[in-house]
């Protein structure tokens, strides 16, 4: 399969790879997907007291498109409020990376990951 240049670029130079302390109250963690399906995304966000995402990190097990989708997502959410980040749509990710139809599920997973991370953060705050 031929990959788009943007997918290749993110795959070769993934942004914001890493792990944050999941027990930190400012950190929200989302882990979505399943090993049996061939992709698992872990996305972590660090949120300041104004509700703005200061930092984001990811680790992904999956194909190149899944890695690229999560890498792109970490770039996009940084500096956004939780509300703004929660509105990111998978179609925007798919469009930006020029994902072919068989890879759309990678962008869906990325959208699920940010939603899960926001949920985790908000549950902790309560």
């Amino acid at each position: 399969m031929a990959y788009s240049e943007k997918v290749l670029e993110h795959y070769e130079n993934p942004r914001n790879v890493g792990t944050m302390d999941k027990d930190d109250n400012h950190v929200g963690t989302g882990m979505v997907g399943a090993p049996a399906c061939g992709d698992v995304m872990k996305l972590q966000i660090k949120v300041n007291d104004d509700g703005v995402i200061e930092d984001a990190k990811f680790k992904t097990y999956g194909c190149g498109s899944a890695i690229a989708s999560s890498s792109l997502l970490t770039e996009w959410v940084k500096g956004k409020t939780l509300e703004e980040a929660g509105q990111i749509k998978n179609t925007e990710i798919a469009e930006e990376l020029a994902l072919p139809p068989v890879k759309i599920h990678c962008s869906v997973l990325a959208e699920d990951a940010i939603k899960a991370a926001i949920d985790d953060y908000q549950t902790k705050k309560k």
Partner: peptide, 8 residues
């Protein structure tokens, strides 16, 4: 593996 949450 450095990129893999499963490896961690």
């Amino acid at each position: 593996r450095e990129l893999s949450p499963l490896w961690d």
